[in-house]
Simulated scan of single mutants.
Amino acid sequence: MGLRRAMILMALCLSPLPGAAEDGPVRLHVPAALAETGLLGHILPRFSLKTRVRVVLVDDPAQAQVLLGDSGRPVFDGPGGAWRMQLAPAPGPGAERLAGWLTSEVGLNTVLSFTPETGPGFAAPQVVAAPEAATILAGDARLGLDVSRRACARCHAVEEAGRKTDIGSTPSFFVLRAFADWEDRFAAFYALNPHPAFTQVAEITAPFPPDRPSPIAPVHMTIDELEALMAYVSRLAPADLGAPLQAQDF
């Protein structure tokens, strides 16, 4: 191989491939309200010094790789409200690095260390957890109500109409639904006192011992009926009792 040919091949190896994205500054868009605080002049040079990634501000959000505004992931709170971050589709490694830094402890501490000339400073984002989705079980809820009336209503209030007519020492279904582990408790209610003394679930519980019959009219239930009962209970609104409930048998 001649010297000229070797030099040409080496040059091709060191040159960017046609169509490959070349390194360049990360394009960041922020609203004027944030830019006017002076924050960017504090944090961007520190980011660039640490990462060797340069950042430029662009006026057009459509041209930005990273956007700070009112949509996306919370990054910090401050003048103007809660500031959030969005990444453009296929933002590139530099933009992803900036996004990772902004959401890191180091990035947040850099933001918090900035003191505006006037007005309040910045704070960590106040993230409000989304309410947990209610568990709705599949099954015949109508049959579950019928089973509840037949098997449970003599001790528990199982529907709105009976909430004031149940035995006072036993919690209503609405109260039981407020337990975090209500599903496990209903699924195995037949094993929780006092139910084993008078409850029979076909294919699950053993027959009553001959010398220890049920002290009251026994409750008989199939597995399908138990699943329907749980489907019904899953649709009940949990009672609002204020303080968290303490787990106990029922």
Rank of each mutant, 00 (worst) to 15 (best):
V147L: 08
G139H: 04
T115C: 13
Q65I: 00
G162L: 15
T103N: 11
V111E: 00
E160T: 13
V147N: 09
T110C: 09
E105M: 12
L102C: 05
G72M: 05
G100W: 01
G94D: 02
A129S: 13
G72C: 04
G107S: 03
A130P: 06
R84L: 08
P74H: 09
G139P: 04
E160P: 05
W83D: 01
A123R: 09
T118Y: 12
D146Y: 11
G81M: 08
W83T: 02
G72R: 03
R84H: 10
A130M: 15
P125M: 05
P89R: 10
V127C: 07
G80L: 00
V127Y: 06
A124P: 05
S71Y: 13
E132K: 14
G92E: 10
D70R: 12
V147C: 07
G121A: 08
G100V: 01
V106P: 03
W101I: 04
M85Q: 15
A141Q: 06
G94M: 03
G72N: 03
S148Y: 07
E96H: 02
L143Q: 14
R163S: 14
A88S: 15
G81V: 06
M85A: 11
A133C: 00
A130C: 04
V128M: 14
P131Y: 01
P89N: 09
G92Y: 06
P89S: 09
A88W: 02
S71E: 12
A64F: 02
R149L: 15
P89E: 12
L112M: 10
T110S: 10
A88G: 04
D77I: 04
L112R: 07
G121Q: 02
R149Q: 15
Q86D: 10
A90S: 12
M85N: 03
E132A: 13
F122H: 04
A90I: 00
